[in-house]
Amino acid sequence: MTPPPLLAAVAAALLLGACTTPPAPQDLPADRPVDLEADRRGDLPVDRPADFALEYGWTTGTIPPPYNHSRHLEITPSGAATYTAERRYVEDDPSTTVSFDLEAADLDRLYADLEAAGAFQSWTQEDNPPVGGGSWWLRMTAGGDVTEVPSFVVGDQYEVKNRVEAVLDGAIPPAAQAQIDAWLEGPGQ
């Protein structure tokens, strides 16, 4: 028995939609010129304001111990950064912090990538956000303006928020990420 054409079309669309992944930050947007030599020189297409800084928070939401945790990244205009992880429901060794410095070229790249991803727009908080799930938020300062990305945004902003998250995750040096991951998987679990 063959399924009705409409049912087959809907099933195919759902399968194809489930197979798509958001584009990587380096692919965004297509109209941004890619000049690797310029990136090495620090000549990026967007000038980073001197006060550029950000705070990025992420949480697993309400899941049971030992898996419930949160992370917080803070980057100052000088490039000094702290990356903190906190375990919830744990009395011994509840948090750890890794400090690192981003060079001016790294800050330039981060700002340009956030700009290209659409981070510096006006964001709208979802009217009825879900309760209990994982989430993340972002607060950026640039050129005297503060941009806040709420934990839950309206539907048409989710794709942009996913691109912004990929940029932020890429800004964390692998060694710092490895330290945090090792701590989260360590004895406090």
Rank of each mutant, 00 (worst) to 15 (best):
I75M: 03
N128H: 04
A166Y: 02
D51F: 00
S151C: 04
P4V: 11
L15E: 07
F152R: 04
D43M: 06
E165F: 09
A142I: 01
D145F: 10
S95I: 01
G132A: 03
A11I: 11
S70W: 00
V131G: 03
G118T: 05
L168H: 04
Q179W: 01
L138G: 01
C19G: 15
L36A: 14
R163K: 10
G144F: 05
L6A: 08
D106N: 12
W183C: 12
V149W: 00
D106H: 12
D101N: 13
A117Q: 03
A85E: 05
L36M: 11
V98H: 10
D92G: 08
A175N: 04
V164M: 04
E55G: 09
Y67N: 14
Q26M: 08
G118S: 04
W183H: 08
Y158W: 09
V146D: 02
G155R: 10
W123Q: 10
S95R: 13
D101G: 12
A105D: 12
A104L: 10
D39E: 15
A38H: 05
I180G: 04
I75A: 08
D93N: 15
R48I: 11
S122T: 07
V154I: 12
A50V: 06
D93L: 00
R109Y: 07
L114G: 02
T97Y: 06
L54K: 11
Y67G: 11
M140C: 12
L6N: 03
A104M: 01
S99M: 09
A175Q: 11
L16C: 14
R88S: 03
D43E: 13
R87I: 04
W58R: 06
D106C: 03
G143S: 13
R48P: 13
P64S: 07
D43V: 02
